[in-house]
Write a protein that binds this DNA or RNA. Structure first.
Lengths: 227, 227
DNA sequence: GTCCACACGTGACCC
DNA sequence: TGGGTCACGTGTGGA
């Protein structure tokens, strides 16, 4: 059976070992090709054609199978992640690393089920990218002091980024609030870019939580309303 | 700078192109090495040593960098997943595939939880009564058509019953909304009575979802605000 | 025509 | 040993 391949420097090796004739367009051979090379000792290698060639053949085929196994997994990852078939191997693996990181973070978030606000301000955004219809899905968590116009501000922020809210979860404790959002971006969004945009917007939102609202917060949240 | 490598069939190429001497333990050369090869036409390749060798050098180094990039990501994955450093590349990638699959399933489970609104209106209220400080805790779920003043109405309803919101979860899909609330009543509340009160109040709230708001809903929820 | 990414065959090394 | 993985340098084809 003729192997499909004919690439690589191995070609010259095939020529040297199997054929008596160099290729028409064979690899370039320098003019200072050493005569000592041609004349060098060849003893002990004359028996190679049989066993040695068979071993090489097995080796070659095993290596090919190995490559195919690896490639199969990579293709599967390519299919699992939202990326076209033309992303190169390194970038694909980078995405995979990021994805595993995100999901690891996500599960630990869920395990801690820390919907309830922490003492410190926190913002986290990551993309799920697992929407069945190709839209980008993001999960965002914002924890900060509460204030009367936080929710309207948040809504406006999402609107300005053309993000639709699929799910919102919020918890208030002692004047602090945590919002956990699941939002969907446009079909053609770049997930990574949008993640950064959203993170920055939310950061700005939290930093806007200023003086003017302090006194109202107590009244509003400890007694009557969460508006 | 001396490249660290000396493996591969390329070695023979380096010998042929750069040195006048074959390696001591060079690759085996068959005794039937064709004389026609040594004597074959070398014209047109005598100019290779300069430019060609440089190109080959660049190529070699670029390829090395590429390999290192890929290897870096793989090492990172090896660190991220629970597996020792000695698992082979293919197995590692298999683990990664499985991991991503699992986490994907997990997230879709979460997304598929019944927080999302159903087609029919639903109200359910029950008391948890498990508060550590003796307060009554209620869990309430309201599913109905969305409208612009649903949330303010809901807040007012809770206030009128002297209920504090501890946690609120909401999801919107196609003009319908589900709110899941965890609320705390006063210390001396009768849990059962309050459950009924709350249920009735929420029922009234949903039934108030009337004509006057139909057109606004689309505008409000698909675009601007959920207030 | 230079860069980039890939598949290939091979030597080294490990059970 | 024989079967396995790995890193290497190279040919090749696409931007």
């Amino acid at each position: 059976m003729q192997p499909e391949n004919s690439s690589g420097m191995s070609e010259i090796y095939r020529i040297l070992t199997h054929t008596g004739m160099p290729r028409a367009n064979g690899p370039e051979i320098p003019t200072f090709f050493p005569t000592s090379f041609c004349a060098s000792d060849m003893s002990g290698i004359t028996e190679l054609p049989q066993a040695r060639a068979l071993a090489a053949k097995n080796h070659k085929e095993a290596e090919k199978r190995r490559r195919e196994r690896i490639k199969g997994h990579l293709d599967e990852l390519r299919r699992l992640l939202p990326c076209n078939s033309k992303t190169d191997k390194a970038s694909l693996l980078a995405k995979v690393v990021q994805r595993v990181r995100d999901l690891k973070q996500q599960t630990s978030d869920i395990a801690g089920s820390d919907i309830f606000p922490s003492e410190t301000d926190e913002i986290s955004v990551f993309s799920d990218e697992f929407s069945s219809d190709g839209r980008s899905i993001f999960k965002a968590s914002v924890c900060c002091e509460d204030r009367s116009d936080l929710l309207p501000d948040l809504i406006e922020t999402l609107n300005s980024l053309h993000l639709r809210t699929l799910k919102a979860e919020m918890a208030m404790v002692g004047g602090r609030v945590r919002n956990v959002l699941v939002v969907a971006g446009d079909r053609d969004f770049n997930g990574d870019d949008c993640t950064d945009l959203l993170r920055d917007a939310l950061k700005a939102l939290v930093e806007r939580s200023d003086s003017s609202d302090r006194c109202k917060r107590q009244r509003i949240f400890d007694r009557r309303t969460m508006k």
